[in-house]
Simulated scan of single mutants.
Amino acid sequence: MLLVGNLLRILRNIHRTRVYIPSQGPASWQAFLAEPGKQWRTGYSAKALAHCWEDNDGLPNEIAQMFDAPAELLLALPEHKVPLDGGNRDSQNDVFALIRFRDQTCAATIEGKVNEPFGPTVGEWFSNPSHGKRERMRHLCSLLGLDEIPPSHIRYQLMHRTASALIEARRFKTDEAAMIVHSFSRERMWFEDFVMFLRLFGLDAEPDAASVLTLKSGQRLRLGWASGNSDFLAR
């Protein structure tokens, strides 16, 4: 167990650099989790997501369907951290993917879900906010083109995952950004949270379909909910 623990710490330190090691299969993803021993469990999103993406050797079909043209995976980085203003905690995205469709490229953050909620609401996270939280909220609202702090029932995680995609789209100079929820829940748990998030932008959400808008900044943003194959929950 000591050797395994040391290996996980080494791999997490490697993940903080700009050098990435090719995956040897789904098990390679475990080391990059915030809590590898706790989060790597059969029936949960981290493990299901890893098996799904590795088995497809490219874009899972349900992710490819989020685009209005044949889509190709150029690069996928599990547990990709994106720095955000305010505080010292990055947004750790389940998958960051560079995707090509037609003559366009997209920087996409993928949020894996089964039964796990999207974390605290804006009202919970922003209750009695510190200076750092105020700075972060201003940063997120600016990136998302929001004129005011979202209603208290909106899930904070959906805000910073989408902001991560926008930040990385600028960094890689892609044509658009995307935030896609990759859900393996048979009951589509927490879909209503996604619906309410899209309403911030005047959009209607439908499962297995993407909505596209252009933000005030001029950035094009794609938002979608993709239903994953629940067979991966048994892996």
Results as ranks from 00 to 15, higher is better:
E62Y: 03
A209K: 02
N229S: 11
R138F: 12
S127R: 15
E206A: 04
W53H: 11
P117A: 06
D147N: 14
Y44K: 15
P70E: 05
P117G: 06
R220E: 06
E124Q: 11
Y44E: 15
A64S: 14
E176Q: 11
P129S: 02
Q39C: 01
E148R: 08
P22G: 10
V212F: 03
E62W: 02
L215N: 00
W125T: 02
A64E: 14
V122E: 02
R171H: 05
E135Y: 01
R171V: 11
H182D: 02
G87V: 09
D68C: 09
L158S: 02
T162I: 00
K47S: 09
S130H: 10
P129N: 03
E176D: 09
E192R: 10
E79T: 10
M1N: 15
A48N: 04
D85T: 10
L75Q: 14
F96K: 08
L213N: 00
M159W: 01
I21A: 14
A169H: 08
I63Y: 06
K81M: 14
R9G: 04
I167C: 05
L198G: 00
G58P: 11
P26K: 03
P207S: 08
F194Y: 15
I63V: 15
T42E: 07
L158W: 04
S211Y: 01
E206Y: 07
R16Q: 14
M159D: 04
L200D: 00
K47P: 03
I180F: 00
D103I: 11
S164F: 05
F191V: 01
S164L: 07
V82W: 08
G86F: 12
G87S: 11
N93E: 14
L7P: 12
A107K: 03
P36N: 07
R220V: 10
I180D: 06
L49H: 06
S45M: 09
Y156R: 05
R102W: 05
I99Q: 09
N56A: 15
L146E: 01
L221N: 00
A163H: 00
R102K: 10
L158P: 02
S127E: 07
V212Q: 05
N88D: 05
E187T: 14
N229V: 00
P151R: 14
V122R: 08
T17N: 13
Q39R: 15
D204I: 00
D94E: 11
T214A: 02
H139I: 04
F101T: 12
P151E: 13
F197R: 02
V95K: 08
E187M: 07
L144V: 06
L77N: 07
Y20N: 06
W53C: 04
M196Q: 03
Q157K: 07
S230P: 11
D193S: 07
L77C: 10
E176A: 10
S28H: 03
N61A: 03
L2N: 12
G224E: 04
R12A: 04
